Every structure is written in structure tokens, then in C-alpha cells.
Simulated assay, not measured.
Amino acid sequence: MRILMVFEDQYGGLVNPDLGDAAWLVDSPVNRSLATRVWTGADAGSQVTLFDATMGEPGDADAIARFEDIDLHHPSWTEIDVVGVRLTPALEQEFRTLGIRIAACEAGFVARR
């Protein structure tokens, strides 16, 4: 199962945004609009959850907290694409301690198990 964890408040404004099998989006008016379309069935195919987080540059604590939520709600995940979070050495170490493989990418990073 591929999960998207998005900390960008304008992500829902993209044309055909990737939502993976499930998407966790930082709550904002633009992302809430996308979530509402999914919830009402206009954009079927993915599950969408909104969450609160520090606006601006989210920190390691925000990413770990959302990871723990996702791991709890989607225990069968195989990949989590994290958008809008810079991969820091401390964050990378935290994930490696949990047995998660991490790779940086242009939008943020990808966690795989």
C-alpha cells in the first residue's frame, strides 16, 4: 500500500494530484477542497485524511508524529511518499532506527519497508 503524507498547503490545487492508495494532507482550504471532493465520491479511488501541522517548514517532530498515525491506521503500508519535508540527518536516523529505508527525492523523501 502506497501512502502520501503531504505538508504542502497548496497540494490540492495541483491538476490531477497524486493521492496514492491513501493520502494524508495538511489541513488548508485548498487541501480541504480536494478532500471534500474525494469524500463525496467525485474523485474516487483513494482515502484522504486531513491533519494539523506546523505551517511553513515542518520539523522532524511533525513528520514522525504523522508517520506514527499512518503506521497505526495503515499497518500494511509498503511505501510512504513524504512531500514538503526536508530529510534531515536526525529524521533519517529516526526512521532507520525503526527499520525503515529512506531515500531523499525532490519533493521530500520516500520511506519503504
Rank of each mutant, 00 (worst) to 15 (best):
M1L: 12
L4H: 07
L4S: 04
M5W: 05
D9F: 06
Q10S: 15
G12A: 12
L14R: 15
V15A: 12
N16W: 11
P17F: 04
P17K: 08
D18T: 10
L19K: 08
L19N: 07
L19P: 05
D21W: 08
A22H: 01
A23F: 10
V26M: 14
D27E: 15
V30C: 03
V30L: 13
N31E: 09
N31V: 03
R37N: 03
V38P: 07
W39A: 11
A42N: 05
A42F: 13
A44C: 02
G45R: 08
S46P: 04
S46F: 08
S46V: 10
V48Q: 10
V48R: 09
L50M: 13
F51N: 03
F51L: 11
A53K: 02
E57Y: 10
E57L: 14
G59N: 09
D60A: 14
D62T: 04
D62Q: 09
D62F: 02
A63N: 08
E68K: 15
E68W: 00
D71G: 00
L72E: 11
H73Y: 06
H74M: 00
P75W: 07
T78N: 13
E79V: 05
D81C: 01
D81L: 14
V82C: 09
G84M: 03
G84H: 09
V85S: 00
V85W: 01
R86Y: 11
T88L: 06
T88D: 04
T88Y: 08
T88I: 12
L91H: 05
Q93I: 00
E94N: 09
F95R: 00
F95E: 00
L98E: 03
G99F: 05
R101W: 00
R101M: 07
A103I: 01
E106F: 01
E106H: 11
E106G: 14
A107D: 11
G108Y: 03
